[in-house]
Design a protein around this nucleic acid. Structure first.
Lengths: 119, 119
DNA sequence: CAATTAGGCAACCATATGGTTGCATGTCAA
DNA sequence: TTGACATGCAACCATATGGTTGCCTAATTG
């Protein structure tokens, strides 16, 4: 848990995940392009992501290919976030709905159940 | 995003959320009971959670009541985590399933697709 | 009112974190 | 074989983080 959240708690690392999502299996130097930090910094970030199991690597000769691993994300959803509150089913179905907009259900009414809302 | 993930990236804070989930609207000192850290530490943690909008507060006299706010959790799911990969719909529906045990539920088999977890 | 209770503020400390630079190593290609 | 390219390692630095202690203020309550 902690590893995953810590890994995600950094904008640069989330961007790296985004990049891998857009184009999986990139090398370190490929991931460095257009980033405003040194290769070493990126390398460290990737190490953190790797330690959190959010990124898997494969070596090809002198290159290191990085692959996104979404499983831990799914895990924190189901094993941790999912447990909180009524929003749970609500929102999850909401997202599912959003995903396959086949049939319409009730408009997702965010009824403030327990706590004052804002955001 | 960052605030939320950072807030979640600490075991103590996650435990505080757990406690609020178990019993919402607790005061600071109530939340301190049986915790192995000083009141000040807890107070700081709550401040972080508050800043991340994961906890909302209400004052009652000299007391400060803390309420869990699950909305940001739902947001990071739908706005960030949800975007990654096929696991998305898969897992979300999976959780939803788990939620409403229509028929007999299988023993909660942790399908460990990825990594040995810790905590 | 006086004592107690709930919480806030500020300083301080050790360690973690994100970043840098410099150099070393491994691998591919001419 | 000799370089150029891809990555790794290590030291270093500034700041953030999690935690402590001490004291202060504001409500309650006897």
């Amino acid at each position: 848990m902690t590893d995953i959240f810590r890994a995600l708690a950094d904008e640069s690392r989330r961007e790296l995940l985004d990049r891998l999502f857009a184009d999986n299996g990139q090398t370190l130097s490929a991931l460095c392009t257009d980033l405003a930090m040194s290769r070493q910094a990126v390398s460290k970030h990737l190490a953190v992501l790797e330690a959190a199991n959010l990124v898997a690597v494969r070596r090809r000769g002198r290159e290191k290919l990085h692959y996104l691993n979404p499983v831990p994300l799914a895990q924190i959803v189901r094993r941790w976030i999912g447990k909180f509150g009524d929003v749970r089913l609500q929102t999850l179905l909401d997202v599912a709905e959003e995903r396959k907009p086949k049939r319409r259900r009730k408009p997702p009414a965010q009824s403030g159940a327990g706590s004052p809302s804002n955001s």
